[in-house]
Simulated scan of single mutants.
Amino acid sequence: MNLSGLKFSKMHGLGNDYVVINEFDHEIIPENEKNTFSIEICKRGFSVGADGVIFVCPATDNGDIKFRIFNADGSEAEMCGNGIRCFSKYVYDNDIIKKDKLNVETLGGLKIVEITPDKENKNISSLFKVDMGISTFKTAEIPMIAETEEFLDETLVVDGEEISMTTISVGNPHAVIFTENAEKIDLNNYGPAIENHESFPQRINVHFVEIISKNEIKMITWERGAGFTYACGTGATSCVLSGFKLGILDNNVLVHLPGGDLEIEVYKKDDELGAFMKGEAELVFTGKMI
């Protein structure tokens, strides 16, 4: 694949980093090459290196603009909380759509992003509040192969070991495991074993959560298609929603991730649970392939 002359931006949300490609006006990477392109450009030490690739695309439905994200393994994800903050900052800072509230189309549904930019220096972090939408705990919608309608603090046998977890979708699938000490978890062992478990036909994101109080947690993530990441916005949202559903967390929670902090606020709508996510995003550098 000839990438000579390709312009891109490198961005991150709490250390979860992405290569951002602007395809708002025209397609740059052919559709049938996006998977391979993402694999190649995300290779750390051999290329730009990233957890994934974000494409800025024109809206096709009822949004202002469309968000697409491919993992480092070339698979396309439905949604990414840290990624959508980087996306929104890129769109705002590059005058693609100069609005303080964006309606963003994703494979996980329409997301509303409120932007509080730094007016003095657009290269430093800006604050973003994202309506992550309504979640579902229904196993058929996650999707998860299970005998129960919801998998709430239920036991799953993983490589012969019984692990209690809660599964949820916020547009993409998550397994949430509450533990006494997240730092002692062998993530390189449990992460891929749960991600690729036969119960999850589309694989799953995996999170281990340590509760500090009902308003504060610490979590680590094994991200589907990327492995360990410093932060996961949809994951933080899923962990708080799961804790709220189980009655062990309040509706406003500060989430500590290896890359920094996120604020999650749970809301109810027609007896269903949704959440707002608040956090930052930063431009690292812009580049051009030679």
Rank of each mutant, 00 (worst) to 15 (best):
M1E: 09
M1K: 12
G5M: 01
G5P: 07
L6T: 12
S9F: 11
S9Q: 11
L14P: 04
I21M: 07
E23K: 13
F24W: 09
F24P: 08
E27K: 12
N32H: 12
N35D: 15
T36S: 13
S38I: 05
C42L: 07
C42Y: 07
K43G: 09
K43S: 09
K43R: 15
R44Y: 14
S47G: 02
V48C: 11
C57T: 12
D61M: 11
D64M: 10
F67P: 06
F67L: 08
R68M: 13
N71Q: 05
D73H: 14
G74W: 07
C86T: 05
N94S: 07
K98E: 05
D100P: 02
K101V: 14
L102W: 03
V104N: 08
L110C: 05
I112P: 01
I115L: 11
T116N: 15
D118S: 13
D118G: 07
K119Q: 14
E120D: 14
K122S: 15
S125I: 06
K129T: 15
V130W: 07
G133V: 11
K138P: 01
K138Y: 07
M144Y: 00
I145H: 09
I145N: 13
V157M: 10
D159P: 00
E162Q: 15
E162C: 11
S164W: 01
S164Y: 13
M165Y: 05
T166A: 07
S169A: 10
H174V: 01
A175Q: 01
A175T: 05
T179P: 02
T179E: 03
N181T: 00
N188P: 01
N188T: 02
G191D: 03
P192Q: 01
P192N: 07
A193R: 14
A193V: 02
A193Y: 02
E195L: 02
N196P: 00
F200K: 12
Q202I: 14
Q202G: 08
I211M: 10
K214F: 08
W222D: 03
W222K: 11
F228Q: 06
T229A: 09
T229K: 08
Y230I: 00
A231F: 05
C232G: 08
G247H: 04
V255D: 02
V255K: 09
G259Q: 02
V266A: 01
K268P: 00
K268C: 09
D270R: 13
A275C: 08
G279V: 02
E280K: 15
